[in-house]
């Protein structure tokens, strides 16, 4: 298995927030969703891959190469879409593109023009005149025009209306038909990921809580709703978090099938959505 990104024991200390021992890998050719509540460290992580924020310790490899030793080479293969626009807003789109294009050896001007057309972005328009969604699309357009093998997207869908979101996701689906492309997509809007992600990594308070395939998560994780005394009576297999409610208890488990075998008849099991998981993992009571 080839990995597009490998992060080992990454650490970064800020005042009041620390990214601790973050390790995970993104296999090449897939979409990795990075989920977590606001302030969990998603943006910091993506910026550290791009060396916008310097790490205190740990290692990051992109396409097998150290991300600082081969910084320029690696970045020529990375397309980035940040949550906050970073372009000179008083310039026209074509000017912005012409300043950036020479930096990428694989820049394809024809493709760029075609994508601008497809995304309905007028070349002669100034960046500040674009809506939020169009600014996002422009970033994506630039990222795709140099045949980037890794696309990093930091909260690309937040602030977009539902129609735009669908369009963006459809674009990503189209991109992923090419098995050479890898995408890291950070968001707190988990419903977007359920349609496009292959892997999910959950980060909270600067720590990775789990990293797994979406298939496994949606297939094997579940929520058990039962009477309050269930926890005292039994050990629930795969228990991750629990939350006491007014009338009972809700338990998040990573092995719903096994759990079902030992549950009392008056309990209910349901599939866990990514949103449920995010909620339980951040707010629920921990278990082992």
């Amino acid at each position: 298995m080839e990995y597009a990104v490998e992060i080992e024991n990454l650490r970064k200390e800020f005042k009041g927030f620390t990214l601790k021992d973050v390790s995970f890998r993104i296999p090449k050719g897939y979409v990795m969703g990075l989920i977590g509540p606001n302030g969990a460290g998603k943006t910091t992580l993506i910026k550290m891959i791009m060396n916008l924020i310097r790490k205190n310790s740990g290692r990051i490899f992109v396409f097998g190469k150290d991300h600082i030793q081969h910084e320029a080479e690696i970045k020529s293969q990375i397309g980035f879409v940040y949550d906050v626009p970073c372009f000179y807003e008083d310039l026209k789109l074509k000017k912005l593109a012409s300043a950036i294009a020479p930096f990428y050896p694989k820049w394809n001007q024809e493709l760029f023009l075609k994508l601008m057309n497809e995304f309905e972005l007028p070349l002669g328009k100034k960046f500040k005149k674009l809506s939020h969604g169009m600014k996002m699309k422009f970033s994506l357009c630039l990222a795709l025009s140099h045949d980037a093998d890794l696309i990093l997207m930091d909260e690309p869908t937040s602030g977009l209306d539902p129609v735009f979101r669908q369009e963006l996701l459809a674009q990503l689906s189209q991109i992923m038909l090419d098995e050479e492309k890898t995408v890291l997509f950070s968001t707190h809007i988990t419903s977007d990921l359920e349609r496009i992600a292959d892997y999910i990594t959950f980060i909270n308070n600067g720590e990775i809580l789990f990293s797994s395939t979406l298939d496994d998560i949606l297939g094997k994780w579940g929520i058990i709703k039962a009477g309050k005394d269930l926890l005292e009576k039994k050990d629930i297999p795969g228990i991750m978090r629990s939350q006491k409610t007014e009338y009972g208890i809700e338990i998040l488990t990573s092995n719903i099938k096994k759990a079902q075998t030992i549950l009392p008849p008056d309990s209910i099991t349901e599939k866990a959505s990514l949103e449920d998981i995010m909620y339980f993992m951040s707010k629920g009571d921990k278990h082992a």
């Binding site: 897939y30 689906s173 189209q174 992923m176 038909l177 992600a197 292959d198 298939d215």
Partner: peptide, 9 residues
């Protein structure tokens, strides 16, 4: 996967 909007895995 694209048509069904699910993971390629």
């Amino acid at each position: 996967a694209q048509e069904l909007q699910i993971s390629v895995i």
